Simulated assay, not measured.
Amino acid sequence: MDVSGNSTADENTKLPAVVKAAARQLLVGLGAAGLSLDAVARDGGLAVAEVAAVFPQRDDLLTALVIDAYNGSGAAMEQADQAAVAAGASAGVRLLAVTRALRQWSFDNPAEFTLIYGSPVPGYHAPQETVPPASRTPVVLAGIVRSALEAGELTPPRRAVPGPPLLLPEAVQLFGGVPEAPFSDIIERGIVLWSNLIGLLVFQVFSRTHDSVRDESAFFDYAIAVAAESIGLEVPSGRP
């Protein structure tokens, strides 16, 4: 270390990333339930005190990993959407692009996907700070649906949600307000689309469709197109 202390400062700056990298390796082998500060220190070649200095409790480390996973998956979708918009793509093409991007991220990062979309970690309750990163996925989807609505690319539904709205105010705010009829239930339909997307990824990442589907990539596109029909959006067929 030089007299200015720069070496120590650099090490302290890098330490959180080193700890999280070791924790991600443990996620692959043990899952989130097997994560502990002791295990991370052992596998990362660190002292437990070093790990505890940046993440005092296991839940602090889990929260950091959850936030990183949501941010990573959300960024993949945002980048795909930006590229599609720049290419002048329709809303249907944009939807296919962002869902494919999320699928690729999920297969590239199965442990992180499992952390945020798999079974809940026993004893862990995600704090409020995970909400903004988690919102990046529905925000991308909502933006595409809103654009399709404004561009007249949606076909009116044959059936509306009966009774009063089924939404929390936060969902309405995220979308930018409730549209007028015949699209007054488009937010509910968008949440169905989002749910279908995550469920489909769970099936594919956890190999629930490998013994019944010949081409899982093509099936994914087909399933997204079918799900998009529920909001009146046409998704192109084929794999460009």
Results as ranks from 00 to 15, higher is better:
Gly92Leu: 10
Gly92Arg: 05
Gly92Val: 10
Gly92Lys: 07
Val93Lys: 09
Val93Met: 11
Val93Cys: 06
Arg94Gln: 13
Leu95Val: 11
Leu95Tyr: 03
Leu95Ser: 10
Leu95Glu: 09
Leu96Ala: 14
Leu96Met: 12
Leu96Glu: 13
Ala97His: 05
Val98Ile: 15
Val98Lys: 06
Val98Trp: 02
Val98Ser: 11
Val98Ala: 10
Val98Arg: 08
Thr99Ile: 13
Thr99Cys: 14
Arg100Glu: 14
Arg100Asp: 15
Ala101Thr: 13
Ala101Gln: 10
Leu102Ala: 14
Leu102Tyr: 13
Leu102Thr: 07
Arg103Phe: 02
Arg103Cys: 06
Arg103Gln: 13
Trp105Gln: 09
Trp105Leu: 10
Trp105Ser: 11
Trp105Thr: 08
Ser106Lys: 04
Ser106Trp: 01
Phe107Asn: 07
Asp108Gly: 05
Asp108Ala: 14
Asp108Trp: 01
Asn109Glu: 10
Asn109Cys: 05
Asn109Ala: 08
Pro110Met: 01
Pro110Tyr: 00
Pro110Lys: 00
Ala111Lys: 02
Ala111Val: 07
Ala111Trp: 00
Glu112Asn: 08
Glu112Met: 06
Glu112Cys: 09
Glu112Ser: 12
Glu112Ile: 04
Glu112Val: 04
Glu112Gly: 11
Phe113Lys: 05
Phe113Asn: 06
Phe113Gly: 08
Thr114Lys: 04
Thr114Phe: 00
Thr114Trp: 00
Thr114Met: 04
Thr114Tyr: 00
Leu115Glu: 03
Ile116Ala: 01
Ile116His: 00
Ile116Gly: 01
Ile116Gln: 01
Ile116Val: 15
Tyr117Asn: 12
Tyr117Glu: 09
Tyr117Gly: 06
Tyr117Ile: 04
Tyr117Thr: 10
Gly118Asp: 07
Gly118Thr: 11
Gly118Trp: 01
Ser119Tyr: 08
Ser119Ala: 15
Pro120Ser: 12
Pro120Lys: 09
Val121Arg: 08
Val121Thr: 15
Val121Ser: 12
Pro122Glu: 06
Pro122Met: 08
Gly123Cys: 06
Gly123Tyr: 01
Gly123Lys: 02
Gly123Ser: 06
Gly123His: 02
Tyr124Gln: 09
Tyr124Val: 13
His125Pro: 00
His125Glu: 06
His125Asn: 05
His125Ser: 09
His125Trp: 00
His125Tyr: 01
Ala126Leu: 03
Pro127Lys: 04
Pro127Gln: 07
Gln128Tyr: 02
Gln128Asp: 11
Glu129His: 01
Glu129Ala: 11
Glu129Lys: 03
Thr130Cys: 09
Thr130Arg: 00
Thr130Asn: 02
Val131Trp: 02
Pro132Phe: 01
Pro132Asn: 05
Pro132Glu: 05
Pro132Met: 05
Pro133Ser: 02
Pro133Glu: 01
Pro133Asn: 03
Pro133Val: 02
Pro133Ala: 02
Ala134Gln: 12
Ala134Met: 11
Ala134His: 03
Ser135Gln: 14
Ser135Thr: 13
Ser135Val: 07
Ser135Tyr: 04
Arg136Cys: 07
Arg136Gln: 14
Thr137Ile: 15
Thr137His: 10
Thr137Ala: 15
Pro138Trp: 00
Pro138Asn: 06
Val139Tyr: 01
Val139Thr: 15
Val139Ala: 15
Val140Ser: 13
Val140Cys: 14
Val140His: 03
Val140Pro: 07
Val140Phe: 02
Leu141Phe: 05
Leu141Gln: 09
Leu141Ser: 07
